[in-house]
């Protein structure tokens, strides 16, 4: 922890502090993708060299892996989002104003209080997937999550992969899926892929096929363990397919709510160009958990854009506009939102 003294004297510079935060976040992101894809194939390749049946086996394993990916996919995003949530805030602007005063002697670049990356960061790691359970932990235990965030970035996705379908479902289902499912997250991280491969794969894959084929007939996810897994990717929610009107309704709910809290950058130069996209993760109770700016690499990061992005973030994090009154039984549809903030129509010119 930082003591006031450290902050003043030894204090990290703004950049230092932020880099600290930044680094783990970025690492997390790449690590999550890297091993997940590289790992599987790698191990598959080893056993199979040179023999046809190995090849077949490899193919089967690949299918399994694919299955895993279906589920990974979701967990990846979730996880990355969280990570990024932590990353954005890290952005820092240099204080060049110090140079402005001419007759006033600039003493020093203020000792920035080393932003203890602790409190804000934690939520991410823990929150990863299982929405319901995750909610509570994040805010609570800052230290632990931090630790987890650094090394086990990869693992994070793991727990969900094989067994636990990204679909938020309580405990009841575990039996079918069986396997490592229940293990503590920590354990899960430790053994991401290896185990899942062997036993369940074939069945899972079959299930997947079947499920795909039959889906139209009985969209109901039911509690059936098997279907869930397969459906995970293609159809996240277990309830009936949402109608267009239903979706429009939810979009409208979000829009109405957030508009009240958005203070758009109207007077800015080229305000019409300042469209900001946010990936927002929402807790089941409708409270925004985090927001990540979806950067557009084609646009230079200007102070205007930064301010616009922050105004959008403030809008979604504003207490007065939380929680979002969305239908809880459709959580799968709105646990991740993509908001596009466009001030163009506000310009009046």
């Amino acid at each position: 922890m930082f003591t006031p003294r450290q902050i003043v004297n030894g204090g990290l510079s703004l950049a230092d502090a932020d880099n600290r935060r930044d680094a783990p976040g970025l690492r997390l992101e790449t690590a999550a993708l890297g091993p997940a894809e590289g790992d599987g194939p790698d191990k598959l390749a080893r056993p199979g060299p040179g023999r046809l049946h190995y090849a077949v086996g490899a193919a089967v394993l690949a299918h399994i892996a694919l299955l895993g990916v279906f589920q990974f996919g979701l967990s990846f995003t979730v996880h990355i989002d969280d990570t990024e949530t932590r990353v954005i805030p890290v952005e820092v602007v240099n204080i060049d104003d110090i140079t402005r005063p001419q007759e006033q002697r600039v003493v020093a670049e203020a000792p920035r209080p080393p932003p203890p990356p602790l409190p804000p960061t934690p939520p991410a790691p823990a929150a990863a997937e299982t929405p319901p359970a995750a909610i509570a932990p994040p805010p609570v235990a800052p230290p632990e999550p931090l630790v987890a965030a650094l090394p086990p970035p990869v693992p994070a996705p793991a727990p969900v992969p094989v067994p636990a379908p990204p679909v938020a479902q309580p405990r009841p289902t575990p039996p079918p899926v069986a396997k490592p499912a229940p293990p503590s997250p920590v354990l899960a991280r430790a053994q991401p892929k290896p185990k899942p491969k062997a036993p369940p794969p074939p069945r899972d894959f079959d299930v997947l096929l079947r499920d795909l084929a039959t889906r139209p007939e009985r969209p109901q996810g039911e509690v059936a363990p098997a279907p869930r897994e397969g459906a995970a990717r293609a159809e996240p929610n277990a309830s009936p397919k949402p109608t267009a009107t239903e979706i429009d309704g939810m979009v409208e709910i979000v829009r109405r709510k957030i508009e009240k809290c958005w203070n758009p950058p109207v007077g800015a130069a080229d305000a019409g160009q300042l469209v900001v996209r946010l990936a927002v993760s929402v807790d089941p109770d409708g409270t925004v958990r985090g927001a990540t700016v979806l950067s557009d690499s084609s646009r230079p990061e200007t102070p205007y854009l930064q301010a616009a992005a922050e105004s959008a973030r403030r809008a979604v994090l504003n207490r007065e506009c939380n929680p979002l009154p969305l239908p809880r039984d459709r959580y799968e549809l709105w646990k991740e939102l993509e908001l596009s903030f466009n001030p163009k129509e506000l310009l009046g010119r």
């Binding site: 993708l33 997940a36 894809e37 599987g40 194939p41 193919a59 690949a62 299918h63 892996a65 694919l66 990916v69 279906f70 990974f72 996919g73 979701l74 990846f76 995003t77 990355i80 990717r233 996240p236 979706i247 939810m250 979009v251 979000v254 829009r255 957030i258 508009e259 009240k260 809290c261 958005w262 203070n263 758009p264 109207v266 990936a279 927002v280 959008a312 809008a315 549809l333 709105w334 646990k335 991740e336 939102l337 993509e338 908001l339 596009s340 903030f341 466009n342 001030p343 163009k344 129509e345 506000l346």
Partner: peptide, 27 residues
């Protein structure tokens, strides 16, 4: 398969979640 992997893994990032356009705000 790896290719397929990559493609599928990349999908959810864009295809997931409701998309909402916010074009009005409070000055």
């Amino acid at each position: 398969w790896l290719m397929l992997f990559l493609v599928l893994a990349a999908l959810p990032a864009t295809a997931q979640g409701l998309k909402v356009d916010i074009t009005r705000g409070q000055l």
